[in-house]
Design a protein around this nucleic acid. Structure first.
Lengths: 109, 109
DNA sequence: TATACATATGTGCATATGTACATATGTATA
DNA sequence: TATACATATGTACATATGCACATATGTATA
């Protein structure tokens, strides 16, 4: 793994992990580290759904769902398709699916 | 994936994801979703290190490191070995290593 | 065009969280 | 035993964050 700084920029024993990479990885996990967002992603595993369907399904307000969908969009985890008045959301690709299944494997040891 | 509730407990189209599982998975990701904790874990990839070594290496206070190590301990991501006055920390098992490498794969697309 | 509907978004607030500071706990050494 | 050292932890506070509320934007229909 090229997680570390170039030799010479380190002080004592141990390698200082790259701050850039650490930040990116933490941000990556942060998106998945929220109950509502995980539930939204799970809901989209089978079907694409529009915003109000998600809100009803999960018992969340339209506002809350929209705000979380925005975060998921910005992080390229979901994509939108417009159909008239409705915005239809789906997982961006099966990359997201793999991340979720790997996470589930880890928590079931 | 058995991520969903039993059929019958769902309303319209779409499956309501299990709240229990969603919560566990979000909490799992939440631990990794912090810059300082990721850096600590990366630092422990090669070597075991004691608290002050980590603090010096990462430019963090002893207090901050200890508090984060506590969270990592509670989530079984690191383990402690006592040697006199010092507490020597290491990754709990290579399960943690796998999680980190998978995360890195994802952010590098 | 006026209205209803679906979604997006700005804002405020309550809660969560990371860390500094101070201190407690535990261990080795003089 | 007294002191220094290493770590753990309680507390306060600043910041981050998720969501409710109100409203803006965009689209279809009467």
């Amino acid at each position: 793994m090229s997680v570390f700084r170039a030799p010479g920029s380190q002080k004592a024993q141990g390698h200082v992990p790259s701050e850039q990479l650490s930040l990116e990885l933490a941000d990556f996990y942060k998106v998945f580290g929220d109950f509502s967002r995980i539930r939204i992603l799970f809901s989209l595993l089978d079907n694409e759904l529009y915003v109000n369907e998600l809100a009803d399904l999960l018992g969340m307000s339209q506002s809350a769902v929209s705000h979380q969908l925005r975060i998921l969009r910005q992080n390229k985890l979901v994509k939108v398709r417009k159909d008239g008045k409705t915005s239809i959301y789906s997982l961006d690709d099966d990359h997201v699916y793999r991340i979720l299944t790997q996470g589930l494997e880890h928590i079931s040891h």
